[in-house]
Amino acid sequence: MEDADNLRVELHELNFYVQRNIRYHMRRGAFFLRWGRFTAFIGIIFGSAAVTSLLAGASPYVTGAAALMVTAASAIDLVVGTGQRAWLHNDLRKRYLDIESEMFLDEPSSQAGKIRAYKSRIRRIEADEPPTLPALEILARNDVIRAMYPKEEADKSVSQLGWVKRATAQWFDWDTSSS
């Protein structure tokens, strides 16, 4: 009986880990997709404004500011590589989803022998992952807790992050050791 309990706990922990990574990469991929769209929007709007102001004889300061905005947004997009990062995180999410779907399909009695294989596949995915952002990882963990447990239990287990860390979790590598 103890082996069955240990197996159940190990499978639950593994499922939780996979779920957290799915949500982490979903959040990260969506962030880069939105950022890429934002920089494209800036390029279109201010690029059009620069051309229009040149043609209309507007102040050189307005023209310069619009051109600077387009240049800065395009440079950030190019350096960060938002498109490539969005695809990377989407691919990583799909790889975790593959593991999750196999875990759902497998009979619980057959999973004891497959745990090592699942963990091996997870390690290969982790080798391809960029460094994680701890505050974003906590937000993804909180998402899983809220999805898997009843509200009363979830409310006791979620980690609290200040609004600044929540709002900037995609941007900064926050120290979350006290969270």
Rank of each mutant, 00 (worst) to 15 (best):
F16E: 03
I44K: 06
S109I: 13
T82E: 03
T132E: 14
I76Q: 06
L136I: 09
G81C: 04
H12V: 00
L161S: 00
D128K: 14
N142V: 03
L105V: 12
A50W: 03
V79E: 07
S110A: 11
K151Y: 10
E153Y: 01
D91R: 15
R20I: 13
S74P: 01
S157Q: 15
F104R: 15
E129Y: 01
A40T: 14
S110L: 14
A140W: 03
L139M: 12
A72D: 02
S178M: 09
W174K: 01
S48Q: 08
L139Q: 13
I44V: 15
F41E: 13
E107V: 03
Q84M: 10
I125V: 11
S53D: 09
G43W: 01
I22W: 07
P130E: 00
A30M: 08
K165H: 06
W163N: 13
V79T: 10
E13I: 00
G81N: 09
A127D: 12
R146E: 08
L105I: 05
K165L: 08
N142K: 09
A112H: 13
R141L: 05
F38A: 07
R116C: 06
S48V: 05
V144L: 02
M148I: 12
Y17G: 02
D128M: 08
P150A: 01
I44S: 03
F38L: 11
F172T: 02
E13T: 10
E100I: 01
D98L: 12
D128R: 10
L133I: 03
L78D: 03
I22H: 02
T63P: 07
L78G: 04
L11T: 06
S120Q: 15
F31Y: 15
N90K: 14
Y118G: 00
V80S: 00
G81S: 03
R121N: 04
L78M: 10
E137L: 08
L68W: 08
L97N: 06
L78T: 14
L88D: 06
G57E: 04
A40P: 02
D128A: 08
R116S: 14
